[in-house]
């Protein structure tokens, strides 16, 4: 069981966290202006890189705050310190 560094609480056990998928996928400013395909890409499509990946995590069983962290998907190691979502 990994330790994940919550920016508010410090290192805590993995089971206290929930995964929120790829970070920085912003809700479109004008959904109505998008084609069906563009909208579907926003709703359903996410990157799946082999290597560093910026992800959203939430300290669900702790402070309940969301944050962004970069994790290497090959090793599961968090390669950058966590930072708070803007």
């Amino acid at each position: 069981m990994q330790l994940i560094s919550c920016p508010w609480c410090g290192p805590r056990e993995e089971v206290e966290f929930s995964y929120g998928g790829q970070a920085a996928v912003a809700y479109p400013e004008h959904p109505a202006a998008l084609t069906d395909e563009q909208w579907a890409r926003f709703v359903f499509f996410r990157d799946n890189p082999k290597g560093p990946f910026a992800e959203r995590w939430v300290h669900a069983a702790g402070c309940r705050r969301w944050f962004t962290a970069v994790r290497d998907t090959r090793t599961h190691r968090f390669v950058s310190p966590s930072e708070v979502t803007s």
Binding site: G20, Y27, R65, W66
Partner: peptide, 13 residues
């Protein structure tokens, strides 16, 4: 509640 928090914290800050 989690979903409402997620929208508030990550999208509509």
């Amino acid at each position: 509640l989690d979903s409402m928090e997620e929208w508030l914290q990550t999208e509509w800050t």
